[in-house]
Computed example of a mutant assay.
Amino acid sequence: MLKLAIIGTGNISHQFIEACQLSKAYQLTAVYSRKLETARAFAKTYEPLEVFDNLEQFWKADFDVVYIASPNAIHFEQAKQAITAQKHVIVEKPAFSNPRELRTIIDLAVENHVFFFEAARNYHEKAFKTIEAFLADQTILGADFSYAKYSSKMKDLLGGKNPNVFSAKFSGGSLSDLGIYPVYAAIRLFGQPKDANYTATQLKNTVDLNGNGNLIYPDFHVSIRTGKNYDVLDHAEIYTSQGTLHLNHIQGISSAVFQKHDGSKEKLTINAPQHLMLDEVLAFASAIENKDLTAYHTYLNAALAVNQVLYQMRQSAGIIFEADQK
């Protein structure tokens, strides 16, 4: 069983711990927060648990792997420290702001003989294996993948505040936070596109509220739509020469229905995940415990492809993070 530590005390960390407990592959041992009282309040749910507000002391604690769920722009420095301390690292998506940061972390992990994972949960969903098998003998003509959700931070933004999720300093925006899901789905199903672009509704700091992108493959395009100031209700369609495959969502997939050109329908057998993060935490634990370099490099290659595509899309829209200028 892997000893697990947590950086970040938001709701996403609670969800990750729930999945880890379901997996029975992790034992939670420590939590870090900038404020000790915050770490203690978080730890009450999981006691006994070591709590820290000092990162130097935290890295010396007895754990194997750390889950980092701090604000996006902080991931890079914390991941570097973790790897240097010989800890495996799971970084909540988006793991890093740009390809330079990601490449640095991957190289550092190799040097220190530890693993780095980007926690992009939908990439690991078992539903994609079913979808891949169904599409294997079909000609792909294109796809529309969307993920937009009205942000709980919109009230603050409209009130004149600058929440982290809409901040260039913290590498925020709709594409980074939500658009990463449809991009991961496209790369899981179709591989890396030859080109990508994005147009967006942007704030004065260039960060996007919503936008539409295009992943360009040799024989088809995948449209990407994302937003944090509205909700999307119809999330995913894949077009083939034989018909259209409709998915109920781009993550947490529980339904996939193929409608042929004659109107007849075929329902794929999809086993919805018990927990949205369960498949990913099991994949990470398996790779670490079995030293499975084949699976590990598959995950790394996907993370590299997604990070590069997101960077291309941001550049085409003129979305500039402070991390890009370092």
Rank of each mutant, 00 (worst) to 15 (best):
I187E: 06
F117Y: 03
D177N: 15
E125D: 04
E118P: 07
F128V: 02
F134R: 07
K126M: 10
R188N: 09
F116K: 08
D208W: 08
S151H: 09
I140S: 03
K161D: 10
D195I: 07
N162H: 12
Q202W: 01
K126Q: 15
Q138G: 00
Y181Q: 15
S223Q: 15
G142E: 04
V222W: 01
E125F: 05
N214G: 05
Y123N: 10
Y181A: 13
H124K: 10
E118L: 02
A143D: 07
V165M: 05
V183G: 03
V114R: 08
L209C: 05
Q138S: 11
Q138D: 10
G213I: 03
V110H: 11
Y184H: 12
F134Q: 03
L157Y: 03
A148T: 08
K149C: 09
N112R: 12
N162C: 06
V114C: 11
N210T: 09
S146H: 14
F166L: 01
I131S: 05
S146I: 13
H124G: 02
D107H: 13
D144V: 12
G191K: 01
L108R: 05
K161S: 13
L141Q: 11
F166D: 03
G213C: 03
F166Q: 04
D208L: 07
Y217R: 00
T130H: 10
Y150I: 10
V110M: 09
V110W: 11
Y181T: 14
A136M: 09
A168P: 08
N212S: 12
A120P: 02
K129E: 15
S176C: 10
N205S: 01
D144W: 06
L157W: 03
F115Q: 09
L203K: 06
N164K: 14
K149S: 12
R121F: 14
A120V: 12
Y184A: 09
K194E: 14
A200V: 04
Q192W: 06
G173T: 06
G179C: 08
G211D: 00
G213Y: 03
G172V: 05
S171L: 04
D177Q: 15
A133K: 12
I106P: 04
D219L: 07
K149R: 15
I180D: 00
S223F: 11
K204R: 15
D219Y: 08
A136Q: 14
T130D: 11
T201H: 06
D219S: 12
Y184L: 09
